[in-house]
């Protein structure tokens, strides 16, 4: 099978047209040198392979980010005695991080039945391997952490046992927080450390974007669930501010053909819309106190930009000139 130019579809049109009026104007097939190329590259074939990932992956990024950062918020909450907030956060972390994320991740595999092979080896030089371990360890902390927290807050056990549960809950929640931050940010590394020009050229931006988007989303989600405390609002401001900063950075730090997928075509729009939703727009809405709307905007933005970055990868990976440009 050849993903070549002229594509089969394009040729079908040409044939129809040729049959109708004997002449086929327009681009797509190049008569004047025949197949002699006028652009660098081999018949426009991709030089690197675009990602094979489908819709599950951006969703995973989205929920993984929320889960990880919820754990962070949870630990903040317990430290400062917002037990209900902590519980809600831990519930979110557990559901998103220990249930949704693994399911999405497995669904994306070419051979889901072999997903356990992920834990066959530990390779610090493979972001995918690290991710697998981070997700597992996060799950290993967040689930017992949630249980402990619930036991503690319902005072089911008393005495020393109660004390122990309290300490365990504390430790597990802080553990989840640590792995949570990594869970929310490693995805940036995952994309950043590849051969896809638009990705590796922005390898420092991606973790910041994904991590902060996760934090803001977690805060926003909690706010939507009715936890309207100023701490979350501040965090919301912080996340939106960072995202706005990234928007500026992205528009300044351009690499021409190499990362044009970020700035051109549909993919460019996805990135822009995403960044505007969880950057400037979120700030403005919060500023006017429209917190729920801000939260919704941010969550939407976080989702859209995740989708955006995967699409960017597909476009950039299929674009030979991007690869050449990134290496000159």
């Amino acid at each position: 099978m050849t993903g070549n130019t002229p594509s089969e579809k394009r040729l079908e049109e040409l044939r129809e047209q040729a049959w109708k009026d004997g002449v086929v104007p327009g681009k797509g097939v190049d008569v004047a040198g025949g197949p002699i190329p006028h652009k660098p590259g081999y018949y426009g074939q991709a030089v690197v392979k675009p990602p094979v990932w489908t819709w599950q992956v951006p969703l995973y990024f989205f929920f993984g980010g929320i889960a990880g950062m919820s754990a962070v918020l949870a630990s903040g909450a317990v430290l400062f005695h917002h037990v209900d907030l902590a519980r809600a956060a831990m519930w979110i972390a557990a559901i998103a991080g220990a249930i949704l994320s693994p399911i999405l991740l497995i669904m994306d595999l070419g051979r889901p039945r072999l997903f356990l092979n992920m834990l066959r080896v530990f390779k610090h030089r493979s972001a995918m391997s690290m991710g697998a371990w981070i997700l597992s360890l996060f799950g290993a902390c967040v689930v017992p952490g949630l249980v402990a927290l619930e036991l503690h807050s319902h005072h089911i056990l008393a005495g020393t046992l109660g004390q122990l549960i309290r300490i365990a809950a504390g430790l597990l929640i802080f553990g989840s927080a640590i792995f949570g931050t990594l869970l929310a940010t490693y995805t940036g590394v995952l994309l950043g450390a590849t051969a896809i020009p638009a990705w590796f050229l922005h390898r420092t931006l991606l973790p910041i974007h994904f991590g902060t988007a996760g934090l803001g989303s977690a805060a926003g989600l909690l706010e939507l669930l009715g936890h309207r405390i100023s701490a979350l609002n501040v965090i919301g401001f912080y996340a939106a501010a960072v995202e706005s900063a990234l928007l500026i950075w992205l528009s300044v730090n351009k690499h021409g053909a190499a990362d044009r997928a970020i700035h051109e075509h549909g993919t460019g729009w996805l990135i822009r819309i995403g960044e505007i939703l969880n950057g400037p727009l979120a700030i403005v809405l919060r500023f006017f106190g429209l917190v729920p709307f801000a939260a919704i905007a941010f969550l939407l933005g976080a989702l859209v930009s995740r989708v955006g970055w995967i699409m960017v990868g597909k476009v950039s990976g299929s674009d030979p000139e991007a690869v050449f440009a990134s290496q000159r």
């Binding site: 040729a18 797509g28 025949g34």
Partner: peptide, 28 residues
């Protein structure tokens, strides 16, 4: 160019014996 055919187009070739269809492979 003379026949306004582009690389990859479908064309029909005719002789006094009959006609068949093929693709055009344009090349120097």
């Amino acid at each position: 160019v003379e026949l306004k055919i582009k690389n990859g187009d479908y064309i029909s070739i005719v002789s006094l014996r009959g006609a068949i269809e093929s693709r055009a492979l344009v090349s120097r």
